[in-house]
Write a protein that binds this DNA or RNA. Structure first.
Lengths: 151, 151
DNA sequence: TATTGTTATACTCTATAACTATA
DNA sequence: TATAGTTATAGAGTATAACAATA
């Protein structure tokens, strides 16, 4: 009797969590990538779009449309760096911060509802484990070299 | 200081776990959906392709190509149900079971390496929590009715 | 007619590479 | 020339709907 795969179990869980977030985000008028961008900028401003993309695990070409919309909606500021006008200084506006907090409140309320299903012990262990595992880099998770086996 | 979003943290973790599985699956000559199919059939045979698709969270039209390949490779059996020839009885062949166990062994070895980074307490709580949360249906995770707000 | 499986189509997401501007 | 950002293109993955076979 093997234990279920961690990857498969979490994959299903994540898809459902994302499905739960979508209506909340739609009501706030932002996409999932938009939400990720606001979350990354919430901690501290970022000096280049490429760095921001990397921080949220996206391609730099993929977030441009997202940034366009967030800027148009007045949720982020995006100005050329006076010291190097190739780069774009990215930061949250007050409106962006407020909207992010509102969306995050609703999203975490639903997550809290699910976490309440767990015994307190397991819940705390789970949250600590997620924090540790999510902090690993992709390389650390993938692990040792996986040499392609010759046919 | 808000806690990080569960969805966002797990999203990143899952993407990396999947990336870690891909080379293993490639060496075994199956895709991620192929692996999911084998895993679902490992517990017990299934009477229709639609039921199998639902069990692994896929669309019924999406697994057809996967089933074709698995059958061609002799990993699954796929016969019309004599009692209702519209349906296809799906089951694992011995070769399919062996291949699944081999792939699962490698995949779980890597997962075990990551789990070993956690204190034993957290690890056990984490595994129990994942089991409970992954067993929830999508509807249970999404939660209460999310009525679209009129503009 | 209803259901199972299949095929066809369109749509979204993603990745790659070419292009513009600044340095 | 090198870097940051943008645009264009193609590819994979996904969802929807139409179709064929069986009941």
């Amino acid at each position: 009797m093997a234990r279920p795969d961690l990857g498969a179990s979490l994959h299903h869980l994540v898809r459902s969590l994302v499905a739960a977030e979508l209506p909340v985000l739609a009501r706030h008028g932002i996409s999932m990538w938009g939400y990720a961008v606001l979350g990354a900028l919430c901690d501290s401003p970022v000096r280049t779009q490429a760095a921001l993309a990397e921080a949220i695990g996206a391609d730099k070409t993929r977030i441009i449309g997202t940034l366009d919309k967030l800027q148009e909606a007045g949720l982020i500021a995006r100005e050329p760096d006076p010291a190097d006008r190739r780069a774009r200084l990215l930061s949250l506006t007050d409106a962006g911060r407020a909207l992010y907090r509102s969306a995050q409140g609703e999203i975490q309320a639903n997550e809290d509802r699910l976490l309440a299903l767990l015994p307190a012990e397991d819940r705390h262990g789970f949250l600590r484990a997620v924090q540790v595992l999510a902090a690993l880099t992709r390389e650390e998770i993938i692990g040792g070299p996986q040499p392609p086996r010759p046919i």
